[in-house]
Structure formats: C-alpha cells, structure tokens
C-alpha cells in the first residue's frame, strides 16, 4: 500500500509541474523513484520509456503504467496512471471552463488572435523538429509529403493516412528483408 501512495504522489508531482508533453516528466520520475527511493533502476525506467513510444496512446501514461506495474503490480499501475492523468485532467477542465467564459470580442479577441498565431508557430516548430530527426530516408520524406498534401486538400482523413503509412512501412521492410 505504501508503494502505491508513493507512486501516486510522485506521478502527481511530475504531472503537475511538467509542461508541453509527457516525456518531460522523466527526469522528475528518475530523481524520485530511482535515486531517492530506489524502487526501480534507471535502465528499466528508460527502457520502458522507449518501449512506451512504440504503443499507440498517451506515451507518458503508458510509461507510468509500466513503471507502476513493475514496482507494485496492478495496484501500482492504477495509482501511477491516475497520478499521471489527474493533474492534466483537473487543471485542463478548469482552464477550459474559464476559457469558455472569455468574451470573443474586443481586446480579448485581439489577444486570442495573437495567441493563436503563436500556436501555429509552435506546431510548425514541432513538425520541423520531428522532421529533422526522422526524415532521413527518401521514402519517409515522400510519406510526409503525401500526408501533408492529402490533409491540406482534405482528400483523405488522418486515421486512414496513419494506417496506410504503417502499412507502407511494413511493406517496405518486407521488401528489404527478402533481398
């Protein structure tokens, strides 16, 4: 039981203070669970972090579930997972409620338009960063371009494009395997 409470506390803490994405949680988790309490070793933590990225879903949550399950079985998984989700869920619920109260006119609208411009900028930045590290092979550049154009022209939905890309990856791999 004590382990469950530690997991809940550590993940609540990590979830409440890490911004823009779940992987930023890792250093906090490492410090609390590996160094301070030695509940799991660093290798396992980072192995699970890498593994989590191969599954669909919320990566930070998958990672929390792995770590929780490893440390204290199904109970640990539940508490670590709850800790990883709750701060985001509660804070975002409140933020959305407040957002809905904002008047969409006058100076507030002007402020929102400026904020929306930064949101486009950050998405461009994210796409650029992912591209820089992942678009090395020619075929991947083609996949990215196809997805970009088809989405922009509204020809094929994102779910279908994702599944087709995965299929293309498997087919290419199979082709290489035979050679």
């Amino acid at each position: 039981m004590k382990k469950n409470l530690i997991l809940l506390k550590v993940y609540l803490l990590a979830g409440a203070f890490t911004f823009s994405g779940g992987m930023a949680m890792l250093p906090v988790i490492e410090r609390e669970l590996c160094e301070k309490r030695s509940l799991i070793d660093k290798e396992s933590l980072y192995e699970y972090a890498a593994l989590s990225q191969t599954f669909p879903g919320v990566i930070a949550l998958t990672n929390a579930c792995f770590v929780g399950k490893k440390i204290n079985g199904a109970g640990g998984m539940f508490f670590a997972g709850a800790g990883a989700i709750l701060p985001a869920y509660i804070l975002m619920s409140i933020a959305t409620l407040l957002y809905q109260l904002l008047p969409q006119q006058g100076p507030m609208l002007s402020a929102l338009v400026a904020v929306r411009a930064t949101s486009a900028a950050f998405l461009f930045a994210v796409a650029y960063t992912i591209a820089k590290y992942n678009l090395k092979a020619k075929v991947n550049i083609i996949i990215a371009l196809i997805c970009f154009i088809f989405t922009l022209l509204n020809l094929i939905g994102a779910p279908v494009l994702i599944l087709l890309s995965a299929l293309a990856g498997v087919l290419i791999y199979t082709g290489k395997d035979k050679k």
């Binding site: 075929v139 991947n140 990215a144 970009f148 922009l152 890309s165 791999y173």
Partner: peptide
C-alpha cells in the same frame, strides 16, 4: 515490422502536423 511501421507513422505525423499548423 513494428519498428518499420512506427518509422513510417512518424514520417506521416510530420506531414499531418505541418498541415494542421498551416490550417491554423
């Protein structure tokens, strides 16, 4: 196979995110 599929999906996500950013 899983790794190959993930690499392609990652590439796809670049295109998808760019398209969303451009829409905004």
């Amino acid at each position: 196979y899983l790794k190959a599929a993930l690499t392609s999906v990652k590439a796809a996500s670049v295109g998808l995110i760019f398209a969303v950013a451009l829409s905004i």
